[in-house]
Measured scan of single mutants.
Amino acid sequence: YIGSKISLISKAEIRYEGILYTIDTENSTVALAKVRSFGTEDRPTDRPIPPRDEVFEYIIFRGSDIKDLTVCE
């Protein structure tokens, strides 16, 4: 799965898409590269977040912050 395009939804209901870079089982983290944030879209939340235009080089997510993770390709 390393190198695959991943769609990830955080506990804050924010969806991110990026390339799976590393999975650290010891620290329970997932790192994505070339990440875009799509905001909360239409998911119900107390704090709606708009999508962002910039592409983040890397984002490291803690396993406890991840609600859903899907391989896109």
Rank of each mutant, 00 (worst) to 15 (best):
I2N: 02
G3W: 02
G3S: 03
G3H: 00
S4P: 04
S4G: 03
S4K: 12
K5G: 10
K5Q: 03
K5D: 07
I6E: 01
S7F: 15
S7T: 06
S7Y: 08
S7Q: 07
L8D: 01
L8M: 07
L8T: 01
S10E: 02
S10R: 00
K11T: 14
K11N: 05
A12R: 13
A12K: 15
A12T: 11
A12L: 10
A12F: 04
E13P: 02
E13Q: 14
I14C: 13
I14L: 07
I14S: 07
I14N: 13
I14P: 01
R15C: 02
R15Q: 05
R15G: 01
R15A: 02
R15D: 00
R15K: 04
Y16I: 00
Y16M: 01
E17H: 01
E17R: 04
E17M: 10
G18A: 04
G18K: 04
G18R: 01
G18I: 01
G18Y: 02
I19S: 07
I19N: 09
I19E: 06
I19T: 11
L20W: 02
L20R: 05
L20N: 01
L20Q: 02
L20A: 10
L20K: 01
L20C: 15
L20D: 03
Y21K: 13
Y21N: 14
T22C: 05
I23K: 04
I23V: 11
I23M: 12
D24Y: 07
D24R: 01
D24I: 01
T25A: 10
T25H: 12
E26F: 05
N27A: 12
N27V: 03
S28M: 03
T29G: 10
T29W: 08
T29C: 11
V30H: 04
V30M: 12
V30I: 10
A31M: 05
L32E: 08
A33V: 13
A33W: 07
A33S: 14
A33D: 11
A33H: 13
K34N: 14
K34I: 01
K34Y: 04
K34V: 02
V35E: 02
V35K: 00
V35L: 02
R36Y: 04
R36A: 04
R36N: 06
R36L: 07
R36K: 11
S37P: 00
S37F: 10
S37T: 07
F38Q: 05
F38P: 02
F38L: 05
F38E: 04
G39V: 03
G39F: 04
T40A: 01
T40N: 07
T40I: 02
T40C: 02
T40F: 00
E41G: 06
E41A: 00
E41L: 02
D42Q: 12
D42A: 08
D42G: 08
D42M: 13
D42F: 13
R43S: 02
R43D: 07
P44Y: 10
P44L: 10
P44W: 12
P44N: 10
T45C: 14
T45W: 03
T45Q: 02
D46G: 13
D46Y: 06
D46H: 09
D46V: 11
R47H: 14
R47L: 11
P48H: 15
I49W: 06
I49R: 14
I49N: 05
P50M: 09
P51N: 04
P51C: 08
P51Q: 09
P51G: 12
R52V: 09
R52K: 10
D53T: 14
D53K: 14
E54H: 08
E54S: 09
E54K: 15
E54I: 06
V55Y: 06
V55H: 06
V55N: 07
V55E: 14
V55D: 06
E57F: 00
E57M: 02
Y58R: 15
Y58N: 15
Y58Q: 15
Y58L: 12
Y58D: 10
I59V: 09
I59S: 09
I60T: 14
I60N: 15
F61A: 05
F61Y: 00
F61I: 07
F61W: 00
R62S: 14
R62L: 08
R62G: 08
R62H: 05
R62F: 04
G63P: 14
S64R: 12
S64G: 12
D65I: 01
D65K: 00
D65S: 07
I66V: 08
I66Y: 09
K67N: 00
K67D: 05
K67V: 06
K67A: 09
K67L: 09
K67C: 02
K67P: 01
D68P: 01
D68I: 07
D68W: 02
D68F: 01
D68Q: 09
D68H: 13
L69F: 13
L69K: 03
L69Y: 08
T70G: 13
T70V: 09
T70Y: 03
V71Y: 09
V71R: 11
C72F: 14
C72V: 12
C72T: 08
E73A: 11
E73S: 10
E73R: 05
